[in-house]
Design a protein around this nucleic acid. Structure first.
Lengths: 199, 199
DNA sequence: GACTTGGTTGAACGTTCAATCAACAAGGAC
DNA sequence: GTCCTTGTTGATTGAACGTTCAACCAAGTC
């Protein structure tokens, strides 16, 4: 009888619901009915709703590699292409959900501006995990950029553009807005790299 | 007895509160106490909370020029610098609120993903007003960019970067993240314009 | 068989929320 | 003076919310 895994079912349900509806609009009742768990059991594992949020953010953070990067990079070897493969993963998400949902962290980050420090730290850790991964790709391709290029800043720009693009695509209900944002990032990269080739 | 302007006080209070706390977390009671109005009066002017949101979004949209662009462009004449003056206006907002609050539209856009069409249309109109203004600046400086440059896409990129930068600055509680995003936009523009000069 | 431990159950609690409503006030029209 | 319109008042309603709790169960220990 090890396999009931109530705690896991709760977290799994909460990950989905917080992504779909946000934190505030997801009621405990929503989570209970999706995870097929009773309120007492939930409160046996989590002191309150916010502690569940923290567990969810930890799960997101720990899932960046196995759930996001690895699937996105399946066949991609080129480090710069890995970045665009990652962005394309988000594009798929947007399309699959009919422009309804984008990046769960971005949504939560804006919703929970006044959140307590533990929550904000975890949001930052999620962003940091993402940016760090992109930065490592850029470092692998460092020779293609002009010497002294601030690769960290470029990695942050990729996140900025992803989040901003998702926001616009969702608002207008058109992936094209996301596509144009990514295309501009590509153009910027090309401009930087061409400049280096010429030197 | 013309000057009581209950309706205006309600909208004004709601604009502030939706910006500070978001839509869902702002209760009617919050709005009532800030605007010094009784619930019955509010419901006399607005059938429900969502209708108030619509009025607020209309007010934001109509305020883009007088409340945002004109103050930001006070002394700035150069069209490209106008864009960065606008972004700097958001920087001030971030600093003034101690990295707490950024763009009200961006926050609402992410919070209200599943909103009804009227709300989404108004969010899109707000974005469109912003992007349109930036696009007009770019067109004024068209000669500085390579011929055939997609100025509309560049204007959208400015919004993308503003929103993404605000999101990161707020999450990390450091303006520097916003600054770095804007600096990258500047670098991209410079690269585009330098290329044109050389031609 | 008695006791403990870890987990489960779901009704119930107190609060907060958006929304309602009957009563009332002030001004203009006639 | 009566009526109509426009606006105001605040107690009240019912639903939804996060959370609690006493009771219960099954497996393990001695």
């Amino acid at each position: 009888m090890v396999g009931k895994d109530t705690r896991g079912r709760i977290i799994h349900a909460a990950m989905e619901l917080f992504w779909l509806k946000g934190y505030g609009s997801t009621s405990i009742a929503d989570i209970l009915s999706r995870s097929q768990v009773n309120s007492g059991s939930l409160y046996h594992f989590f002191p309150g709703k916010q502690d569940l949020l923290i567990a969810v953010l930890e799960a997101y953070r720990d899932g960046i590699g196995p759930m996001l990067l690895e699937p996105a990079w399946g066949e991609v070897a080129d480090p710069v292409e890995k970045i665009f493969a990652l962005l394309d993963k988000y594009r798929s998400l947007i399309v699959e959900t009919d422009c309804g949902y984008g990046c769960p962290i971005g949504s939560l980050a804006l919703e929970l501006h006044e959140a307590d420090p533990a929550v904000r730290r975890l949001l930052a850790e999620n962003f940091e995990g993402w940016v760090g991964a992109v930065e490592r790709c850029l470092e692998e391709a460092r020779h293609r950029f002009p010497p002294g290029t601030d690769l960290r800043a470029l990695a942050e720009l990729a996140l900025t553009i992803m989040e901003g693009g998702v926001m616009q695509a969702r608002t207008h209900r058109e992936v094209a807005h996301f596509d144009r944002s990514v295309a501009q990032l590509r153009a910027y990269f090309d401009l930087l790299m061409v400049k280096e080739e010429a030197a």
